[in-house]
């Protein structure tokens, strides 16, 4: 097991013990800046925003968790609500019985997970507010496998791992850094409000990264890849929304 792997397991408990110093020591100083820094005043502001909020989050607090009574009556669906991709439609018609998630890149044992295998991993349920960068917010109860657990089940990440890249069935992609990966609330959710994840909300699996805006919470996840750099992946900014011109870090 690599050092980072050991950290990953240690921090899956709430209020995990990973400290800023520890992250720095394990090569996670990326926590303070996006993988690609834009030019000009906007780029400077990006770095200020990310480093300030990450500094406030040094102790890895949990995003607020609410009670069942707070759950939104009908959780909105937004953006892509049913990918037209043929393979996806096939899986959907089979109830995702033959669907599987590819986990590759800088993990010790790249592998595939069926939905059942993911459900057999220790799960986490959290009632949190989804905050969309557009302005809306809604509270829902998410159940899923902590991302750190999934990576652990693939043998753990290698020491040069810096980002996890997510691909989706509708051709989207996003990435998050290790600071977010080790957080206990960062889960691959397969249930919303106790039911299987509805198609409109990203069935069968979506990322919940509770301390970042909606656009980082990628739906219809089909593959995850651990990398040491996002350069060379599509336009190289680390996500489709940042390829478009949004800030890669969705914390505000």
């Amino acid at each position: 097991m690599s050092r980072m792997t050991a950290d990953l397991t240690r921090t899956t408990k709430p209020g995990g013990a990973i400290s800023r110093r520890r992250l720095l020591a394990t090569g996670c100083s990326d926590a303070f800046r996006p993988p690609v820094i834009r030019g000009g005043l906007i780029g400077a502001a990006d770095v200020l925003t990310m480093s300030t909020t990450r500094w406030l989050l040094t102790d890895q607090p949990l995003a607020r968790e609410y009670t069942r009574a707070d759950i939104a009556p009908d959780f909105p669906t937004w953006g892509q609500t049913n990918p037209s991709d043929e393979v996806y439609q096939q899986h959907l018609s089979e109830g995702f019985a033959n669907w599987s998630l590819s986990v590759g890149g800088l993990v010790e044992r790249p592998r595939w997970f069926s939905l059942d295998e993911l459900k057999r991993l220790a799960s986490r349920t959290q009632i949190t507010a989804h905050v969309c960068e557009q302005g809306w917010s809604a509270i829902g109860e998410w159940t899923g496998a902590p991302l750190a657990q999934v990576l652990e089940a693939a043998g753990g990440v290698t020491p040069d791992a810096r980002y996890v890249v997510f691909e989706s069935a509708d051709g989207w992609y996003e990435s998050i850094d290790m600071f977010e990966v080790v957080h206990p609330q960062t889960i691959l959710a397969y249930r919303l409000n106790g039911d299987d994840l509805p198609v409109g909300n990203g069935a069968p699996l979506r990322l919940r990264v509770e301390r970042q805006c909606g656009y980082k919470n990628i739906k219809f996840v089909s593959a995850i890849r651990v990398v040491d750099s996002v350069a060379g992946i599509r336009r190289g900014t680390g996500g489709l929304s940042s390829d478009f011109g949004f800030h890669w870090y969705g914390g505000v």
Binding site: T53, L56, A63, R64, S137, V252
Partner: peptide, 26 residues
């Protein structure tokens, strides 16, 4: 403004209480 940020709200949840929630802050 910052109460609307999911990362700052995680660090300072009292901001949400102060304004009565994210939508109230907005």
């Amino acid at each position: 403004g910052i109460a609307q940020s999911p990362s700052i709200a995680a660090a300072w949840p009292w901001l949400l209480d102060l304004f009565g929630g994210r939508q109230s802050a907005r």
